[in-house]
């Protein structure tokens, strides 16, 4: 077998593999932004420009949606080991689930055991796409400069098992990581 023919076969095989990457790379928010700030020791994350109609129609069909707010605390790494990245101190994830309640004819926002009913869809959406009043995580005692990385993931349709197998190919929206510098007393240093 000539080397060129062999190489073509190898390249052909390699070219199939990018299809698998569909499972790995979730689509990013396009046209949407995430606003993040720290106010009075509380974190506020807000998604703007989200295609709400898709979300609302999905809820009306009987499906649930989920917003996941991820908050990570990092400490800057100094010295020679900077190249391997900063130190992840902790990570917290807050889940909001939204659904249409046929019984109360309202939108229901669930966070853990807490339930909130909303008649007005836009009021519901505003609450669903905003994390407000979340306390700033405790910083460790060790001296150093810290910052937060925050991200929002919104799933218009929260799949139930075993359909979670399809989660990788569903049109979920994931924001970029937003950085918030933070000092030891908890205030946004900006």
């Amino acid at each position: 077998m000539q080397l060129s023919v062999f190489s073509k076969i190898v390249l052909k095989k390699i070219s199939i593999f990018p299809l698998f990457l569909l499972f790995l790379i979730p689509p990013c928010l396009s046209g949407q932004t995430v606003q993040a700030e720290i106010r009075d020791n509380e974190i506020i994350l807000k998604v703007t420009g989200y295609p709400s109609n898709d979300l609302l129609s999905s809820l009306k069909e009987g499906f649930r949606a989920r917003a996941k707010y991820t908050i990570r605390i990092y400490r800057y790494r100094t010295g020679l080991f900077r190249i391997i990245g900063d130190i992840l101190i902790s990570e917290e994830q807050i889940f909001y689930e939204g659904m249409w309640d046929d019984f109360t004819h309202t939108y229901l926002l669930l966070q853990g055991e807490d339930r909130q009913f909303y008649q007005d869809p836009w009021e519901f959406l505003s609450e669903f796409l905003t994390l407000e009043g979340h306390p700033l995580p405790l910083l460790p005692e060790k001296e150093g400069e810290y910052y937060l990385l925050c991200r929002v993931e919104v799933e218009n349709l929260l799949l139930r098992p075993p359909l979670t197998l399809l989660q990788g190919i569903m049109s979920n929206y994931v924001s970029q990581w937003v950085k918030l510098p933070v000092t030891k007393n908890g205030r946004n240093s900006q």
Binding site: F23, L24, L158, L159, R160, P161, P162, T164, L165, Q167, G168
Partner: peptide
């Protein structure tokens, strides 16, 4: 297990 628990499959 991840699928059954509804968790995202880890990369």
């Amino acid at each position: 297990l991840d699928i059954s628990a509804g968790r995202r499959i880890s990369n």
